[in-house]
């Protein structure tokens, strides 16, 4: 029997709620990193069973607990509203500038205009691949899902074309369950079929996240069963570490997986890491690129287009320029409409 610390009533050993007052009997001690709001997910107290209907004391206890854990309401409304002056002074010029720029662009744009100079990350990735010898091994990490495949495949394919032209040994691996399918789709989407002699070696999906990456770093050939042909092509001893690779390229649509690659591999191994990230993820990885842990960071559709321009082989990204222009202009039109609507709106109280 255990006694309730609130009302003193005796309860069975395995009871989680007091039969007398309905309060929680056993509260687990606070764990490391718990209760830091917004940093880590909350650790709820899991109660066995459901609250019986009609028991007011239990419901009251639940309401009290929820109210106690809620953040207090703000003491005063948000300050600093600029009012009509700001709307006319900033909003109106903004609409005018956007409209003038859009008109000038539409008037001056021709499809034969040369592309913009590539960002330093794109040029660095291009040169890293361009100097690879034909005996080089390149590890490709496919860390995205079908959700972002539309964007990521555009970015992956120019890199694949370049790697295939260098005739290097390609090895696929993924920390995502659908990663191997993403790799297959990216190779299948190339204009020309991949020669059998250059078919990538598949290490498949590796569960275990950071621990899996550590295992991969220790012995890449040992983390997945390989066919004899794949083993011959890879030509790696069972206990040879990841330094046997000349380059690692991660295709990432998630900050967490890229951070794991940086922490477990790039920060500890001398193998250069290129990250081709989705537009939403790349800004979060920029600090790692600035410190050199990511040697080259490519980001989204613009860098795919720039890479194709560097390669000199127009691919899917080049073909979709008109579609990209149309969608961006559509979004711009909605922004202009929202701005105009905002200018006509009454000031917020």
């Amino acid at each position: 029997m255990s006694s309730c610390r609130y009302c003193g009533a005796e309860n069975a050993d395995d009871a989680t709620l007091c039969a007398q007052c309905g309060r929680v009997l056993t509260v687990p001690p606070p764990q490391v990193l718990a209760q830091i709001q917004g940093v880590l997910p909350a650790e709820p107290v899991i109660l066995s069973g459901r609250l019986p209907p009609g028991d007011e004391a239990l419901w009251q206890a639940l309401v009290t607990a929820v109210a106690a854990s809620s953040p207090p309401p703000p003491s005063s409304p948000s300050p600093a509203t600029g009012g009509p002056a700001m709307r006319i002074g900033l909003g109106l010029p903004m609409v005018v500038v956007i409209l003038i720029t859009a008109v000038l662009t539409a008037a001056g744009w021709r499809s034969d205009l040369s592309p913009a100079p590539p960002r330093p990350g794109v040029a660095a990735a291009y040169h890293l691949i361009a100097v690879l010898p034909s005996t080089a091994r390149v590890l490709l990490a496919w860390d995205y899902d079908p959700t972002t495949q539309g964007e990521m495949q555009l970015l992956a394919q120019p890199l694949l074309r370049h790697l295939l032209s260098r005739r290097v040994v390609l090895v696929n691996v993924s920390l995502r369950p659908l990663g191997p399918a993403m790799a297959a789709a990216a190779f299948a989407g190339l204009e020309t079929a991949v020669p059998l002699a250059q078919a990538p070696v598949d290490l498949g999906f590796l569960p275990g996240e950071s621990a899996a990456l550590q295992a991969l770093a220790l012995a890449p050939a040992g983390v997945a069963p390989l066919s004899p042909a794949a083993r011959d092509r890879l030509a790696l001893a069972g206990d040879e570490p990841i330094t046997a690779f000349d380059l690692i390229i991660e295709f990432s649509a998630e900050t967490a997986t890229s951070r794991q690659w940086v922490e477990q591999i790039a920060a500890r191994q001398p193998v250069p890491l290129i990250v081709a990230a989705s537009g939403a993820v790349a800004p979060a990885l920029e600090p790692y690129a600035q410190t050199g842990q990511i040697v080259a960071l490519l980001s989204g559709y613009p860098d795919a287009l720039a890479y194709e321009a560097l390669l000199g082989i127009p691919g899917t990204a080049t073909e979709r320029q008109m579609a990209q222009n149309a969608v961006h202009l559509l979004v711009l039109a909605v922004v202009i409409a929202a701005l105009i609507r905002s200018l006509r709106r009454r000031p917020s109280p």
Binding site: L113, S114, P115, Q321, N325, L332
Partner: peptide, 10 residues
Amino acid sequence: QTPAMVATWP
């Protein structure tokens, strides 16, 4: 990020 914009104004 709009290709036409970037091509017109690099």
